[in-house]
Design a protein around this nucleic acid. Structure first.
Length: 833
DNA sequence: ACCGCCGGGTGCC
DNA sequence: ACCGCCGGGTGCC
């Protein structure tokens, strides 16, 4: 996403980092890339235009739906139609039926549509000449391999597709831009959205922290978004009608305004504070939230008085909603609590309820009477479909914190989020687009940005044009995003002044030299791995053996950290003689992938694997995710990564007793490594300079953190540890300890790279030691940002330990435009094949 | 629908 | 006329 390699001056980034090239292509993981290459989703992006033809819509007089000149229409199969099982219904953008496709043509189209050979889209170009029928331009889109079948299928019914040119494709005649132009436009999608014409707004009295100028701007913008009756993007008034210029749809009623948007400020700019200010400042009719106040302590007894209760004559439905629901990742739950505590005046009685834990109060009456209800995505999706009280409440406002965590529309989490009822909707996210323009859909759907909350319209009007490099499509996307987003970065300037002044950040790459012994061990492992991968290459089975390849590369990375990180080397799956042995090996492999503490990603939900299971083809998924895939695909279920057949009863998980192994890294036969020595050298030097300096020590391998505990203890450092296995309560406790400025407070935090997720506030630290490079540059940035953020007063030192491996440097010298094949090429290059 | 199609009325010019 | 032609009734799927 960012050209951060230049920003940090890391051209010499050279550890055994097969994933380095990700820094060039968005933050995409290897598994995602392979998934994309292996299984094209039946989505808009892979589609090509087969051709177009003129069709007829009949029966207009029976329906109320109207269509304008140039308006897009939806074509919907109606297999249950009592008059014709081939019926194809025609509807306008808002879903009102317009008519039917005439019978003979419907018969031809039904064949194509029912067999999923093509998606058919309609545009009505010429104005209706009569009140009974009208022509419609039909475009057939699908996978290349289905093109002939579609053309022939239509021909059998006497219809001919016009396959030359795109004439008459409507407002989206494709003007292809070069790929890199598209990429730039895409990268800049969220840049330059900081101009705020709204001015500044002071927070309500109940907010105790004075807002910085950019926060007042954000507050002003957010209030305006909630209160204004401005038309949503692409709508204009034409006479008596409201007209959408993208879909050419028009309506008599004012289109529903999106009351909310995306606050996409960089992390550290105070999105949480601004949101708290919004909640307290903008209740109904732009008035502050009517909160009760305690009389200040200096006055008599602490009585409770009611400040302002509105009972005006306004329509009741609008005013009935009171509560704001905030949904966040578990990792930032305590941060929200802290921030409410910190930024709301102590004498203000804000009803905040933490909807979390098994004892949570599920009463709708109780919840809707709160000012704020705070919960996590997991709780929300756990409740969803299970008489969820959260889904039965009409919220005044719903806020999705770190909103980018919902990006795959197929997940329960997304469905749960989209099903919430609210008058106002907000998304907070420092990185709204994680991988591709696809990620935006869930967010727009959540905001109810019509008509794009319907996936087909989104695909048709935005996603496909953008994916295909259509300039108009990109412009439309930019306009769309601009209308609903406010984004400032830490480097943004307003009126020539920086938005916030953060202390300087110094990045330092320390190259660690391996000892002779380490180097030999490394070379051995690499030769071995190379042979294995070479065999897969020769067999053409690299993708099928993906888990193995990943494991090989993982081992190399682990060797650079510490030899004891290596899990036992597993042997060939094919060599397994009995089912029991196969199972044993699969468990071993699963352990290898997960036990290192590195976060493996599930290719179905694109999130960290939860309840991991491994398939017989050795790919790891969340059990619920892969179970869903299998149940959807029935008999035909195939592994999303390699397309091998998979069955529910063949999924292997850790046997229960395995769950808590892991205290093997005991201090009895502890040994050091070059990297450990390098770290300890740094820490001891710091301690000598200034005993109050606090440091974060970050690794993606939790076992490495465990190894590091021994020398830290030996040298008398007081430290805490934060990793993914800890309960929320424990995390909050550890963070509080670390942030404390008490003289005996811990000076070091061992932090697992992904454990904290985002949003952690660790400003007590001024030094960050990254023990191994993250595969995801965003994760690395977040890691620095945990301390380089608002509230940091000290200069930040960021040290990355790398092993010098010249051999591998050249593998990543070239930027490969075609990322799908480049992974394989990279593996090849990496292994010198 | 200022169409097509159906079916009844009708029938040299 | 077992036709053609006329003109009224009618009309999505």
């Amino acid at each position: 996403m960012f050209s951060r390699r230049w920003r940090f001056g890391w051209d010499r980034y050279s550890e055994v980092d097969l994933f380095t090239d990700r820094h060039e292509t968005n933050t995409e993981s290897l598994s995602q890339a392979i998934r994309a290459a292996v299984s094209e989703e039946p989505d808009a992006d892979g589609s090509v235009l087969f051709g177009q033809m003129q069709g007829t819509v009949v029966g207009l007089r029976y329906y109320t739906g109207v269509v304008n000149q140039g308006e897009m229409v939806a074509l919907v199969r109606q297999p249950q139609n009592p008059y014709d099982r081939n019926a194809v219904m025609v509807a306008n953008v808002y879903g009102s039926q317009v008519g039917h496709i005439k019978r003979e043509l419907a018969a031809a189209m039904a064949h194509v549509m029912d067999n999923n050979l093509a998606k058919v889209e309609g545009v009505v170009h010429s104005r209706t000449k009569n009140q009974f029928t009208m022509p419609v331009m039909l475009s057939f889109w699908g996978k290349e391999e289905n093109k002939d079948a579609v053309i022939q299928g239509l021909a059998r019914h006497g219809y001919k597709l016009n396959t030359d040119g795109n004439k008459g494709a409507g407002p989206h005649t494709h003007t292809h831009t070069r790929t890199h132009t598209l990429k730039n436009a895409f990268d800049n999608l969220f840049e330059g959205l900081m101009e705020s014409k709204e001015g500044e707004k002071e927070a309500a009295e109940a907010v105790s922290t004075p807002l910085l100028p950019h926060q007042k701007q954000a507050l002003s913008w957010m209030c305006a978004c909630e209160n204004k009756s401005e038309l949503p993007p692409f709508w204009e008034k034409r006479g008596e009608l409201y007209y959408n210029r993208l879909t050419c749809f028009s309506a008599k009623e004012v289109p529903e305004r999106v009351r909310g948007g995306i606050l996409a400020d960089d992390m550290g700019l105070g999105k949480t504070l601004t949101t708290i200010a919004l909640i307290l400042t903008n209740f109904h009719k732009g008035k502050p939230l009517p909160v009760e106040k305690c009389v200040s302590a200096s006055e008599v007894m602490c009585g409770v008085m009611c400040v302002c209760v509105e009972t005006s004559s306004l329509s009741a439905e609008d005013l009935s909603a009171r509560a704001t629901l905030i949904i966040c990742p578990l990792s930032v739950l305590s941060n929200w609590l802290d921030q409410f505590e910190q930024h709301v005046r102590p004498n203000v009685k804000l009803n905040l309820y933490l909807y979390y834990g098994s004892e949570r109060n599920r009463s709708k009456k109780f919840l809707s009477s709160q000012d704020v209800v705070l919960t996590t995505y997991n709780v929300l999706s756990a409740d969803f479909g299970n008489k969820s009280p959260l889904h039965g409440i009409n919220w005044l406002r719903v806020v999705l914190d770190e909103g980018h965590v919902v990006r795959n529309p197929n997940t329960q989490m997304s469905k749960a989020v989209l099903d919430l009822k609210a008058q106002r909707r907000w998304i907070l996210s420092g990185t709204p687009i994680q991988n591709s323009v696809k990620d935006l859909w869930v967010l727009l759907a959540f905001l109810r940005l019509k008509p794009f909350d319907v996936k087909d319209w989104w695909n048709r009007v935005i996603q496909r044009p953008v994916t295909q490099g259509d300039r108009v499509g990109i412009q439309n996307l930019q306009t769309l995003v601009k209308c609903i987003t406010l984004r400032r970065t830490k480097t943004s300037e307003v009126n020539g002044r920086p938005l916030v002044s953060l202390p300087e950040k110094v990045v330092c790459v320390e190259q660690v030299k391996l000892t002779q012994e380490e180097r030999e061990q490394y070379e051995l492992a690499r030769t071995e791995g190379r042979n294995t991968i070479r065999r897969y290459m020769a067999e053409g089975t690299v993708l099928r053996n993906y888990a193995d390849v990943l494991a090989i590369l993982m081992r190399l990375r682990q060797l650079c950290c510490h030899p004891d990180l290596l899990a036992k080397i597993s042997s060939d799956l094919a060599a397994a003689a009995t089912p029991a042995e196969l199972r044993e090996r699969l468990i071993e492999k699963l352990r290898l992938v997960l036990a290192s503490g590195s976060d493996e990603e599930c290719s179905v939900c694109l999130d960290s694997v939860r309840l991991p299971v491994i398939t017989h083809c050795a790919h790891v998924y969340c059990r619920p995710c892969i179970a869903q895939v299998i149940s959807t695909e029935k008999e035909m279920a195939r592994c999303p990564l390699c397309r091998s057949e998979i069955k529910t009863n063949e999924l292997v998980e850790f046997p229960p007793e395995e769950m808590e192994e892991e205290d093997s890294a005991n201090s009895q036969n502890w040994r050091s490594s070059s990297k450990v020595d390098a770290l300890m050298g740094n820490l001891r030097r710091l301690q000598f300079e200034d005993r109050s300096i606090k440091s974060l020590v970050v690794s993606q391998f939790t076992r490495f953190l465990t190894i590091l505990e021994t020398p830290l203890r030996e040298h008398g450092f007081s430290f805490v540890r934060l990793d993914g296995t800890m309960s929320q309560k424990k995390r909050a406790q550890v963070i509080q300890e670390f942030q404390s400025s008490a003289p005996d407070s811990p000076v070091i935090m061992l932090l697992s790279l992904k454990a904290g997720g985002v949003g952690l506030n660790l400003t007590a630290a001024s030094h960050v030691f990254l023990m191994d490079p993250a595969w995801n540059p965003a994760a690395e940035e977040q890691c620095i940002d945990r301390c380089h953020r608002l509230g940091q007063t000290k200069k930040i030192f960021y040290v990355v330990f790398l092993q010098k491996q010249d051999l591998f440097e050249k593998a990543f010298g070239s930027k490969n435009a075609d990322k799908k094949t480049s992974r394989i090429d990279d593996i090849k290059a990496l292994m010198e094949l």
